[in-house]
Nucleic acid binder design. Structure first.
Length: 576
DNA sequence: TTACCTTTGAAGGAT
DNA sequence: ATCCTTCAAAGGTAA
């Protein structure tokens, strides 16, 4: 199991590193949030970004939120999210969320209505939010560490029935946008009424269909606003955390697979009886049990786990296959972060292009403090755990090829010179504007990460120093020896040791040689990604070589605005 | 209509 | 052990 031992944020990585990281970048970041920044942004955008963005002189993020474009459901979602974001921040500060009970890992993921892992769930897109609650279980034994740090009451232990539903009202609870009324503090919504709770355990019993959480929506239409049995997973609106495939889960969830922790997690919400395999794998209520994985899930029969096998539907017709639910990969820390922050970023800047937004988010991610990132890493870990529990036989590989062809991986190879294609990729990121500084910093995060290997993360003591230096010198970083830098157009260092030639490599060699990804960035590998950021310099060159793509431009501007309060001279560079 | 773009991280196959 | 590739989200954009 992943280390939870690392426990909370502290453990996750060297703080030092992160901190250093913050020095420059963070400040900027925060600034980004300032109105002034927004203004800058607006200005910039106005020039580049087209009108659609209606800057509306929006110095106010609020206004931005109100943008017509915002989907109704999103609005509420965003608000909630914003609120959460703030809450997060506060928590980080140590204030707000200091939950007496469960300081350790407070956030719960509140996904959208539909199951996030199932692509079919078609609800409005959405977002997840995190609630601070006791984390029931998924915690690995190690997780206890964190808890241990805090005065964790016995009831908080994994053994405890986690779920407290309505009663256990989290301060944030109200914020959750479930649908509006769920979780009103103190007074549970009708659907959450005591009746729902299991008399014996006090745990929520299987809710009535109407009560069911969107999490496990049977069908999109059904989804609605239902309180989710798994409060912690409660989605806001839109996609459920674990949506049920159109076909419904055919197989009862492999309860067997659940470990104690898991069981506590799920069972608490889904008591055994709940799990009992109803006909068709649907829940008694008629709703498929979340845990139940449809046969379709397993892309490849042979891959199926034993349990799955046993239950596998007799005839997987082609048709079924088509229908078979696509189980999505669990979101990683960054993805979780993105989900949470995207709205905010979008609100701050009028940009809507995801590519641009993502760049900003990427930067912000790096500027996060270790603790902040740690939270997400942990969440991601939990998600992975949960995912694995829910879909024991699932393999990331199962999804390969589902996304259609992954871009032009090959194209570049064929034509290295083809700037048109590559241009997009390359440039942006490293706009000088960002002050490269932060760029290198990214490395911090890398250290942090590897949730999987906390120890490693912590470890990397070596890294810290390096990181700092790296910050100072953006490029130098590349060479971090230890890190295996992996992939995507890694410009720099790399084995080839062409660190120096980052620019050149990027333009030509790297692209062709390397694989698919177009990022110019250098990624650290899993556990010890040292350089997660793209190399700035390289980008510079590139940018010169080819005009920035729309994405880039947008990103540039946005970045500029968001990350630099001051209009740096750099800008010029972008232009190049 | 579909794939691309962009980000970081995770996973798993390939070397 | 390391490298490489793909996918996860998201939504405007381009083909």
């Amino acid at each position: 199991m992943p280390q939870l031992n690392g426990g909370g944020g502290d453990d996750l990585g060297a703080n030092d590193e992160m901190i250093s990281f913050k020095d420059e970048g963070e400040q900027e970041e925060k600034i980004s949030e300032n109105v002034s920044a927004e203004r800058d942004l607006d200005d910039l955008k106005s020039s580049l970004v087209n009108e659609s963005e209606n800057n509306s002189s929006s110095s106010d993020s609020e206004q931005a939120e109100r943008r017509p474009q915002t989907r109704p459901d999103l609005e509420s979602y965003e608000k909630a999210r914003d609120y959460f974001s703030e809450a997060l921040r506060r928590q980080q500060d140590g204030g707000f969320f200091k939950s007496p009970h469960y300081p350790g890992y407070p956030f719960l993921m509140i996904p959208d209505l539909s199951n996030p892992y199932l692509s079919n769930g078609a609800l409005s897109p959405s977002a997840r939010t995190y609630l601070q609650m006791k984390w029931p279980i998924l915690d690995v034994p190690g997780s206890g560490l964190k808890d241990s740090r805090s005065p964790t009451p016995g009831h908080l232990s994994n053994k405890v029935p986690v779920v407290q539903h309505a009663h256990h009202v989290h301060p944030l609870t109200p914020l959750i946008t479930y649908s509006n009324e769920h979780f009103s503090p103190g007074t549970p919504p009708s659907h959450l009424s005591p009746e729902i709770l299991d008399p014996k355990t006090g745990i929520p019993r299987t809710p009535h269909p109407s009560e069911l959480s969107p999490y496990y929506p049977l069908s999109p239409g059904a989804v609605g606003t239902i309180a989710h049995p798994l409060g912690w997973l409660m989605p806001q609106q839109g996609q459920p955390m674990y949506s049920i495939p159109p076909g419904g889960f055919r197989h009862p969830y492999p309860a067997l697979a659940m470990n104690a922790s898991m069981s506590s997690l799920v069972s608490s919400r889904f008591s055994p009886h709940m799990v009992s395999p109803p006909p068709h794998g649907l829940h008694q209520t008629g709703i498929p049990h979340p845990a139940i994985v449809s046969s379709g899930i397993k892309q490849e029969p042979h891959d199926m786990s034993p349990s799955m096998h046993a239950r596998k539907s007799p005839v997987p017709s082609k048709k079924e296959e088509d229908k078979r639910p696509h189980i999505k990969k669990p979101l990683n820390a960054f993805m979780l972060y993105m989900k949470e922050m995207r709205a905010k970023v979008v609100a701050e800047c009028t940009l809507k292009e995801s590519a641009a937004i993502n760049q900003i988010l990427g930067r912000r991610w790096h500027s996060l403090s270790r603790e902040e990132q740690a939270k997400y890493y942990e969440l991601a870990r939990k998600e992975r755990q949960l995912h694995s529990q829910l879909y024991p036989g699932w393999s990331a590989r199962d999804n390969y090829g589902k996304r259609k062809k992954r871009k032009r991986d090959n194209k570049p190879d064929s034509k290295p010179e083809d700037f048109s294609i590559r241009s997009k990729k390359q440039c942006v990121q490293y706009l000088p504007s960002e002050k490269m500084c932060d760029s290198p910093a990214s490395s911090h995060s890398s250290m942090l990460d590897s949730p999987a290997t906390p120890s490693a993360s912590l470890a990397s003591p070596a890294a810290p120093a390096a990181t700092h230096s790296e910050q100072a010198q953006p490029l130098s970083l590349t060479t971090k020896p230890e890190g295996r830098m992996h992939h995507h157009y890694s410009l720099a260092g790399k084995a080839s040791g062409s660190s120096s030639s980052s620019s050149s490599s990027s333009s030509s060699s790297s692209s062709s040689s390397s694989s698919s990804h177009s990022h110019l960035s250098i990624h650290g590998s899993h556990s010890t990604p040292i350089l997660s950021r793209p190399i700035p310099f390289a980008s510079l060159h590139h940018s010169m070589l080819s005009p920035p793509s729309p994405y880039h431009q947008a990103a540039l501007h946005s970045h500029h605005a968001l990350f630099q309060s001051q209009p740096l001279s750099l800008v010029t560079k972008h232009n190049n």
